[in-house]
Simulated scan of single mutants.
Amino acid sequence: MNPLEEDEHLSRRLFLAGAAGTAVAAGASASGLAQEDEGDEGDEDDENGDENGNGGGGGTEFVEVGDNYYDPDSLTIEPGTTVVWEWVGEADHNVEPTEQPDDADWEGHTDLKADGDYEHTFDVEGSYDYVCTPHVGVGMVASIEVTEDAGAVADGPADLVPDAAWTLLIATVAGMVSTLSLVYFFMRYGGEPAE
């Protein structure tokens, strides 16, 4: 028996109802995924805040202290962010502040060492510059900018769009492509219209 010659034919109304249902289901699942992503981000904010869920700063940033370099050598952070310097090289290095805001109390880590770590929480807004004293001549310098607007600084256009929006866009496009594929398949192979 040829499947194209079955007794029951797919009517266009039934097909359009099925296509609309598929589109609605795809949209609903994409919306659910977007809400789930937004909920996850809220949980992270609570973990970084104080016990009342209020923002307690910008979390933690890491700087690698290697042989004659800091990585990254430039940071933009929010007040309340803790910066952790981790020694990974073999030579002795330090973190010597050379410039900071007047009301800041950052003393740095002036003792030379080759391993371990050092951390400081930056609460005062402003520009902080620091160097490795014995290696400043080879360019081992770095800076930190502490500003309330640090969260708004983006690395590129992709960072300006939240992850939930990208998820929603991808799910919508996938739903449209699958719906159009079904439309083509049923129009091409769906049989004769009902008489």
Rank of each mutant, 00 (worst) to 15 (best):
D37Y: 15
D37P: 06
E38N: 15
G42T: 12
E44H: 09
D45E: 15
G49M: 07
E51Y: 05
E51W: 04
N52M: 00
G55A: 15
G57T: 11
T60R: 14
T60Y: 10
T60D: 08
F62A: 09
D67N: 12
N68S: 08
Y69M: 05
Y70L: 06
P72G: 03
P72F: 01
S74Y: 11
L75S: 05
T76A: 06
P79H: 03
G80C: 02
G80S: 00
T82D: 01
T82K: 10
V84A: 00
W87M: 09
V88C: 03
V88I: 15
E90I: 08
E90S: 14
H93D: 11
H93W: 07
V95M: 06
E96T: 15
E96M: 13
T98V: 12
T98F: 03
T98A: 03
D102P: 05
A104E: 03
W106E: 00
W106Q: 00
E107Q: 15
G108R: 00
G108V: 05
T110H: 09
K113R: 14
D115S: 15
Y118L: 02
E119R: 13
F122S: 06
F122P: 06
V124T: 15
E125G: 02
S127E: 14
D129L: 10
Y130R: 04
Y130K: 04
V131K: 07
C132R: 09
T133G: 11
T133S: 14
T133I: 06
H135S: 02
V136M: 08
V136T: 13
G137C: 01
M140G: 04
V141M: 10
A142Q: 06
I144N: 05
T147C: 00
E148W: 04
